[in-house]
Write a protein that binds this DNA or RNA. Structure first.
Lengths: 329, 329
DNA sequence: TGAAACTATGCAAACGTTTGCAGAGCCGGT
DNA sequence: ACCGGCTCTGCAAACGTTTGCATAGTTTCA
């Protein structure tokens, strides 16, 4: 039923080699025959079998993406970038969601390894020892995780954190809470690092947490924050920030009048919240695309091209309505 | 470098056939040798090459999922279900996002066809004629779209719509607006159908739209609604509902006191909005799983098992804080 | 004791490609 | 007239599996 290269060859009156070459190395076959072959192929609806091709070339034309949790709105956006760029580069993408489970993530990489030319690990939750076991099984590119000299695209939050701090300082805040994310998270470590770098003598930072990076953790965080007597909050991510705002509303603390709130990620709902959330936007989609670029680069240039193994993407503070000058005490 | 079945055979001192059988038809090989083979395979880190296997069996062990837009939070949740169930059934999933573009969607199906055993089309945007061209190229399962007698899992909104109407009626609303989604959308047609079925003599329905199923379309819709003088709104989906609420807030119309709002989908941010949105919850994740079940069923049982080609999932009204009794006029 | 029936294994062909090698035809230079 | 080189094409081997057929060994039963 499926039409193979043989069918095309027979129909076109040439050998299979010629058909194959007409597709893969066009300049090796006479223009005239080539056109003929292409037309017959088109007419028969021929599509090369990538599996068979992969068998001999050793390349599959696929790669994998593993994300910790599809229901975290951060990931679909980077996935979208990965997906788009992959299609442009004529790759197909395998998707897997490891449910925030490092062991599962490792298993997935191993399962994928044979079917793909490389894997993009998005905010990988694996431990270093788990990573050691998978590095080398296939080409890996990381997003938002730095592991030795593996290629990675990083959305370093330091710049965004500085902008957030400066923004709050300019508004007049002098005592600000930072709500930590998961303590094993690379992102949280980087955000804290950014926080320390941005430290100012005229502002006191109160660290709270760690909290799960989810809406549900917000209320607990909010209660702790209120007790601290700060005038502004920087949350590890938007989900947490939104959870906090929800609880603040319940407790009658007006945002932004009595409490300014800043998030991280600029997930779609950040702009839809009431009040719309001031947040640090990551270039997720571009990160996805960049990861693909890194990967294809890694696969095509053979040698140790120590060049651009790493891509750093700036982030950007987006000021919306959840921040303003602190209330007079 | 990669370890093949040959390596295992040599190392274990048996033929490749035996190794192959030890994995695929365990009862054809003596338990003792089988254990031996399995251990050597494990020791060498052997993983069967699915492409090679697929070449001969005609099955790839993969399937594809195509969604219209990953940044619509509705889809990642069903994707999550697909993904999880697929892994349980030992399938790998290809993901593609067609950017709401029907032509692109068709091209994607065709491109995938050779690499997968079947494709799940989520809220397909294809025209009937486009569908005709792809039906038959590979096994298809639809989610939220009914096309002839193709297998499909449908989240029929009729029940949810009735619940929504009854809920609003019970609160005392007598004039309610329905905000249409895209008019080519199966979901919108079904929701309207549910609306008519749920019609009551004591309630007047005002239809508006169509609107894009996005937050950005909300403000426009909200302005129209206000002019209509209704006391409650049922929106095509949550995104639209949230956009409406945002605008209502801007225009000083209090939700729910002056205007009740009901959405559809129960996307994550519905529960996080202020006020939390009353909405009709779909069983997205279950829908994803069901689609996979349908597909594997379709692939394993050969004959025309006219049995369960269709799966209907009930939906459920979730009452939150965006609906209440109408203000006294 | 011998045939029949199993059981466990190996051999080799097949799946749909790509690609090294070789041959055929042609052109230009001597 | 011959040779070297170039251009185009075909043959056949390979990729890593699965599987029909054959074979050798073992058991069962009359």
């Amino acid at each position: 039923m499926p039409v193979t290269i043989q069918d095309v060859a027979r129909e076109a009156g040439v050998s299979v080699s010629t058909v194959s070459r007409a597709f893969t190395v066009p300049d090796l076959v006479k223009e005239e025959t080539r056109q003929h072959v292409l037309q017959t192929a088109e007419r028969l609806g021929y599509r090369p079998n990538r599996a068979a091709r992969g068998l001999i070339t050793g390349k599959t034309g696929n790669f994998g993406v593993i994300v910790p949790d599809l229901s975290n709105p951060f990931f679909p956006t980077v996935l979208k970038g990965v997906q788009a760029r992959a299609r442009e580069a004529d790759y197909a993408v395998f998707l897997a969601d490891c449910d925030e489970n490092p062991a599962e993530e490792m298993a997935l990489v191993q399962a994928m390894a044979k079917q793909v030319d490389g894997v993009i690990l998005c905010s990988s939750r694996m431990t270093p020892s788990q990573l050691d076991r998978v590095v080398g099984t296939t080409s890996l590119v990381f997003i938002n995780r730095q592991v030795r000299d593996s290629p990675a695209v990083l959305m370093g939050p330091a710049g965004g954190m500085r902008q957030a701090i400066d923004h709050l300082a300019a508004l007049g805040h002098r005592r600000v809470a930072y709500l930590n994310g998961p303590k094993t998270s690379w992102s949280n470590r980087e955000r804290r690092r950014g926080l320390r770098q941005a430290a100012r003598h005229d502002m006191e930072i109160v660290e709270l947490g760690p909290f799960a990076p989810r809406f549900e953790a917000g209320p607990h965080a909010a209660d702790l924050v209120i007790a601290e007597g700060v005038t502004a909050i920087i949350a590890f991510n938007d989900l947490l920030a939104l959870g906090v705002m929800s609880r603040l509303a319940d407790r009658g603390v007006a945002v932004p009048e009595e409490m300014s709130v800043v998030g991280f990620d600029d997930i779609p709902m950040a702009g839809m919240a009431t009040p719309p959330l001031t947040t640090v936007a990551m270039q997720n989609e571009r990160a996805g695309r960049a990861a693909v670029d890194l990967l294809v680069n890694l696969l095509t240039v053979s040698g140790a091209d120590a060049g651009d193994l790493r891509r750093d993407l700036e982030c950007q503070l987006i000021v919306r309505a959840s921040t303003t000058v602190p209330a007079r005490s």
